[in-house]
Amino acid sequence: MRTILQKCTMVGMTEFDVCKLRDYAADLAQQAASLISTKRSEITATGDIRAHSQTKTSAVDPVTEVDTAAEEFVVGSIRKDRPDDGIIGEEGANVPSRSGVSWIVDPIDGTVNFMYGLGEYAVSLGAMVDGQYVAGAVINVVKGTLYSAAVGHGATVTYRDGTSTQLRCRQETDPRLSLIATGFGYTETRRAGQAKILQELLPQVRDIRRIGSAALDLCRVAEGTVDAYYEHGVKVWDVAAGIVIARESGAQVHVPHSWTSDDRGALVWAASAELAPAFERLLASAGAKEVID
């Protein structure tokens, strides 16, 4: 496993635990990324990866055999290594927690990018303790860039060559000078609502980026390659790890109190503490704080 910059202060068991959870998430995410790369190479060597996919919520919302294989690997590893922990996975894993720790797993965040060969998809593995986001890791599978964080211990990016640095989000205060990341849903009605919001926001910001992975969007807020991020309808597995990474870099992250059927179109957004008040007002003026079904 790559070296993580932040070292845990052995003051109490809680601090020790969140660092252990961070390091475990980072190690397991790297293993899953290696599996995904291998399986993608095997499939594309003999045909089109789209022939190995199905759809979920709509005809444009895919899941591939590799998503399923990666989740099975992650779930199997957790159940072997930490048998009392709970698991919530995008592709159906649902294991109750006996330890108080639950792992939130997105085996491939950015599946459309994965299918088309665009190098922006990630494994996201977040840890919750008694309902609180406490640690996580996100790895860009193609670039090998690993983001990780534990509550109270900062956020780190580790590159493929093994070098690491601490993450700090940008401190822009003016939305007009801010680069904003966003994403779009998979249903016609949600996309129509998101398009209306985008039409209001675009003239009032520096520019918009649509990268295709909510997990990576939050990591980009953390590293300062975008100033803010917002999106409707993301799921807990999309952002559980990114929430901790962004917050530990100095960002404010606003999410539903709990992900339920009532939150299916709720807003998630993140920005630096300096930008957050003005960005929140901008979102409200554009109607973005309303639920979009």
Rank of each mutant, 00 (worst) to 15 (best):
P83N: 08
T44D: 07
D174T: 09
I36E: 08
Y147K: 05
A228R: 03
V123W: 01
Y229R: 08
F184P: 05
V291H: 14
S37Q: 11
D207P: 04
A59P: 11
R170G: 14
G224N: 02
L125Y: 00
H153K: 13
D207C: 10
V95Q: 14
G100K: 06
S148G: 07
P203F: 12
R209Q: 12
F184N: 06
A93W: 12
A241W: 05
C219H: 05
Y121D: 01
N140E: 09
P175D: 03
L35I: 06
A137N: 04
D161C: 01
A45V: 04
D293G: 09
C19S: 01
E42Q: 15
D106E: 06
A222F: 08
P175G: 01
Q199C: 08
K20N: 13
V291L: 06
D263C: 12
A69N: 03
T38G: 13
A284E: 13
K80D: 07
C19M: 05
D23C: 00
G89P: 09
G92W: 07
L167C: 08
L267D: 01
V60W: 07
Q194C: 09
E172G: 14
K196Y: 03
I4D: 03
N140L: 03
A181C: 10
A32P: 05
L5V: 13
V255W: 04
T57F: 10
V129W: 05
K143T: 08
G136D: 02
R190G: 02
V112F: 02
K7H: 14
S34T: 14
F114V: 03
A59F: 13
L167P: 04
T55E: 14
I292N: 02
M10Q: 15
P175I: 04
C8L: 09
D207E: 14
V138K: 02
I245S: 02
V236K: 09
